[in-house]
Amino acid sequence: MRIILLGPPGAGKGTQAVRLVERLGIPQLSTGDMLRAAVAAGTPVGLKAKAVMDRGELVSDEIVVGIIEDRIEEPDARQGFILDGFPRTVAQAEAFDAMLDRKGLKLDCVIEFKVNENELVDRIVKRAKDTEARGEQVRRDDNPEVFKTRLEAYRAQTAPLSAYFESKGQLRTVNGMKPIDEVTEDIKKILGR
């Protein structure tokens, strides 16, 4: 099963991805982790990425899709994968779809987490306070001002993906403001497992 989780930061995608990994036995793919691994392994795509990063530039969509293409060839991803945080733009989605087409693969589902942004900011503030109360390091992006900036970037760059995937008949939505276990149940219903 090939799944994309879509939604703004703090919507619960990471929490649900962990549950999906456990239930479905497929990996969650992080583009950041894959990029670092490809560079460390010195793969052809990793060497291209390293050269770009060494110049202080952003890695192109072509390179990111190439890294994903290499990663989904690994044994643990052959039965499927979960992408969270990619694609970030319609151009990335189009490049990703073209790569899957070349491989004769298809996405099974794109699950969008619908949220109330004002409540989401409150959720992030609470998460930061809970983390601090446990004596743990608070995530840098759990600062309300940083978080609001990330939300603005999401609305500008990533939100258009909803219409893109909906036009392809792949988009399903869940209410990301529900309790975690209820969101998990809603996702099970969408996936039929």
Rank of each mutant, 00 (worst) to 15 (best):
I3C: 03
L6H: 08
P8Q: 11
P8R: 12
G10C: 08
G14A: 02
G14R: 02
T15H: 07
Q16C: 10
A17G: 09
V18K: 08
R19N: 12
E22I: 11
G25W: 06
P27E: 00
P27M: 03
L29H: 00
T31Y: 02
A38G: 01
A40L: 06
A41G: 01
G42D: 00
T43L: 01
T43N: 01
T43Q: 01
G46I: 04
K48D: 12
K48C: 10
A49Q: 07
A51G: 13
R55H: 12
V59A: 07
D61H: 08
I63P: 03
I63K: 02
E69D: 13
E69W: 11
R78A: 11
Q79H: 13
G80N: 05
F81R: 01
I82Q: 01
L83E: 00
L83V: 03
L83I: 03
F86R: 00
R88I: 03
Q92Y: 05
Q92M: 05
L100D: 04
R102Q: 09
G104K: 04
K114G: 11
V115P: 12
V115Q: 10
N118C: 15
E119W: 10
R123M: 10
I124V: 15
A128W: 01
E132I: 02
A133M: 03
A133I: 03
G135L: 00
R139S: 02
R139D: 02
R140P: 14
N143I: 12
N143E: 11
V146N: 14
V146K: 13
Q157Y: 15
A159K: 15
A159N: 13
P160C: 07
L161R: 06
S162V: 13
E166N: 15
S167E: 11
K168M: 06
G169Q: 08
T173G: 03
G176K: 07
K178L: 13
I180E: 10
D181W: 04
E182D: 03
V183Y: 06
V183P: 05
E185P: 00
K189L: 05
I190L: 07
R193I: 11
